[in-house]
């Protein structure tokens, strides 16, 4: 899935993987922040999160035709479709007793299975090709290296997205409610905000984030039959590493995973299969208790 843009005049072989890692990490961050919301605010382990990303990815593959207008259209359709799927999921979750984690997880898994099957039925079993806008198809020269223009633009766009997310969480009322719900859901309910509405809103926001990541990231982690699993796994590892306490933690974890998946593989190809595992084990083992208590305090 990751193709390193190999230049003809490589001097420093690790600069390009490192930059790829940033792109990959930011993509994982946008996708994983939706899962962090679900988990932190609504206390739901949403196993259908990867499917929400896949919706965005398939939308991009179906609508993108090389023009800017199609990118905007795909982004709008993908975000709306994934957000709608999130709301549908919230509706399905309503009858399940809150706090019954097992039932919630199993229900979202059922939705992921059925949704994934529908996506494959609708778009075919082969991995579709994604066309980026023609202007971004080439590569640019960056400090003596050739680098895919789309990825460079993606890094900027994803950074803007992350900054917007931060501002929304910090400055708006909705963001305050989200942060309050992470800290003390009972108190938010006492303040008169319906938990069902928070759940629907959070799942819709998670869907929108996953959908946006799916559309914009389609050239990086493309749609396919195993996309949902890949994205879910990466997002889960981000949540495990970054915890639920802060956006900075999530961002750091996502960037670390991006670098592990690209730079780490370039540096230590023989250990590549174990790097993600080792990173998770190392971080958790070092701060296992701290992490658990920070989660408990969250």
């Amino acid at each position: 899935m990751m193709t390193v843009a190999a230049g003809t005049n490589r001097i420093d072989p690790y600069l390009i993987p490192a930059l790829d890692g940033v792109a990959y990490g930011l993509l994982v961050f946008v996708a994983a922040s939706g899962l962090v919301f679900c988990f932190g605010v609504a206390n739901i382990l949403n196993l259908a999160h990867g499917m929400l990303y896949a919706i965005g990815g398939y939308t991009a593959a179906a609508l993108l035709d090389g023009g800017w207008a199609s990118l905007a259209l795909a982004l709008a359709v993908g975000v709306l479709a994934a957000a709608a799927a999130g709301v549908l999921l919230a509706g399905l979750l309503t009858p399940v007793a809150t706090g019954n984690h097992l039932s919630q997880a199993l229900l979202t898994f059922g939705v992921a299975l059925a949704g994934g099957s529908l996506l494959v039925a609708g778009f075919g079993p082969d991995d579709p090709r994604v066309r980026v806008p023609a202007a971004l198809e080439g590569s640019v020269v960056l400090a003596g290296h050739r680098y895919a223009a789309y990825r460079l633009v993606f890094i900027v766009v994803a950074a803007v997205l992350a900054a917007t997310l931060y501002l929304v969480l910090r400055r708006t009322r909705a963001g305050m409610l989200v942060r309050a719900a992470v800290d003390d859901a009972e108190m938010v309910a006492c303040l008169g905000v319906s938990p069902a509405r928070i759940r629907a809103g959070v799942l819709a926001a998670a869907g929108a984030l996953a959908g946006a990541a799916g559309v914009l990231g389609a050239p990086i982690i493309g749609p396919g039959t195993d996309t949902a699993d890949t994205v879910l796994l990466l997002s889960l590892v981000v949540v495990v590493l970054g915890g639920l306490g802060s956006m900075a933690g999530t961002l750091l974890a996502a960037l670390a995973i991006g670098e592990i998946q690209t730079l780490g593989v370039a540096l230590l190809p023989s250990a590549a299969p174990f790097l993600l595992f080792a990173a998770m084990a190392a971080v958790l083992a070092v701060r296992a208790r701290g992490l658990a208590s920070s989660w408990r305090a969250a």
């Binding site: 007793a97 019954n100 939705v111 059925a114 949704g115």
Partner: peptide, 20 residues
């Protein structure tokens, strides 16, 4: 997978109290 997914959802609804 589609039928299996629907069965998952149906089963969860049929076991509303589940664990508790």
């Amino acid at each position: 997978p589609l039928v299996l997914g629907v069965l998952f959802v149906a089963t969860v609804y049929l076991l509303p109290a589940g664990v508790d």
